[in-house]
Amino acid sequence: MHSIAIVAAAVLPGPALADVITIRSNEWCPYNCETGSEQPGYMVEVLTEAFAYSGHSIRYENRPRNRALRESRMGMFDGLIGAAPQGVARYVIPATPLARVQPVIAVRAASGFSYQGVESFDGILVSAEHGYNFTGEIDRYLTRHANDLRRIDLVFQSNAGALGLRKLLAGRIDALLGHQAVLSYLAGRQGVSEQIRLIAVGAPVEVYVAFSPAARNSRRYAALFDIGMSQLARSGRLDALRRKYGLEQEP
């Protein structure tokens, strides 16, 4: 506690120095949802409330994931959310994750598919959204076979998850890689929850807010975020936000 107070004294600004911190991400509900909606997403609300402790506000906008990665590297905005550290190696990453997400494979409900390692993908077409991490083994498989259209359907569109579910149920792909809460949310929106089966793979993945390597305030923002998150955790507010977005059962 004493060390947190010392860090806070070093980085907390006075009221006149309150910043508007610009954050971008693709739509990945319920973690980050549509810009300007009444429920902008769990991670957006966590970020907003964590920075409110230091008097800062958040301006969040949706961007396609590849564009958000490219523009944040250039310092065109302050940071992006929902990033796994291995995908943003040169960014400034706080010590505290925004969320933990469970990688899953979606298959048709009647499918007999079971996952016993990437050898299970032999002979089937697997779809994944470009730029996401799943497990080390699966990530290596996707990289190794990225150009093999018989094995991998790599999707770059911002609506890759919703599109993937439609392709899965139409029989155009055999399996869809994603994350539990996101695919559950999308399946509910499409009214197809009973038509798919989600298979958990690997351990939950910690995802973070990643601050631009080219922005001058990134290290200060990372420190302020950690302080705000410790306050949210102690107050019980993090648990309340998880309940709001139906994430009580998430890791």
Results as ranks from 00 to 15, higher is better:
54 S>V: 15
64 P>C: 04
113 F>C: 02
133 N>G: 12
241 L>P: 00
49 E>C: 07
24 R>T: 11
9 A>S: 15
79 G>V: 10
186 L>P: 02
182 V>A: 02
192 V>T: 08
70 R>T: 12
93 I>R: 14
175 A>M: 01
238 L>D: 07
69 L>D: 13
39 Q>C: 08
218 S>G: 10
31 Y>N: 02
157 Q>P: 11
215 A>C: 05
43 M>Q: 14
46 V>C: 09
196 I>L: 14
121 F>E: 06
243 R>A: 12
163 L>G: 11
170 A>V: 07
175 A>R: 01
183 L>H: 10
166 R>P: 05
155 V>D: 08
69 L>E: 15
105 I>R: 06
130 H>D: 12
46 V>G: 14
115 Y>E: 14
249 Q>T: 08
101 V>P: 11
123 G>Y: 06
182 V>R: 00
1 M>T: 06
109 A>W: 01
219 R>F: 03
184 S>E: 13
164 G>N: 04
120 S>C: 10
152 I>W: 04
209 V>D: 11
6 I>C: 09
99 A>R: 01
230 S>N: 08
133 N>D: 02
134 F>Y: 15
57 S>W: 03
212 S>V: 15
118 V>E: 11
74 M>C: 03
139 D>I: 06
169 L>F: 05
160 A>P: 08
143 T>K: 05
138 I>K: 09
175 A>K: 02
56 H>D: 15
126 V>E: 01
26 N>F: 14
57 S>E: 10
98 L>W: 03
161 G>N: 15
143 T>V: 11
94 P>Y: 09
7 V>N: 14
129 E>P: 10
6 I>P: 00
89 A>V: 10
72 S>A: 15
88 V>M: 11
58 I>A: 00
115 Y>N: 10
147 N>V: 13
179 H>I: 01
78 D>M: 05
72 S>I: 14
5 A>E: 14
185 Y>W: 04
172 R>W: 11
229 M>L: 09
107 V>N: 04
85 P>C: 09
52 A>L: 05
17 L>P: 05
195 Q>M: 00
235 S>C: 03
219 R>N: 04
194 E>Y: 03
172 R>L: 09
224 L>I: 10
53 Y>W: 12
103 P>E: 02
44 V>L: 03
167 K>N: 12
58 I>C: 02
51 F>L: 15
195 Q>D: 02
232 L>M: 09
224 L>N: 05
26 N>C: 10
180 Q>I: 00
176 L>Y: 02
119 E>V: 15
139 D>L: 01
40 P>C: 04
80 L>M: 11
190 Q>K: 06
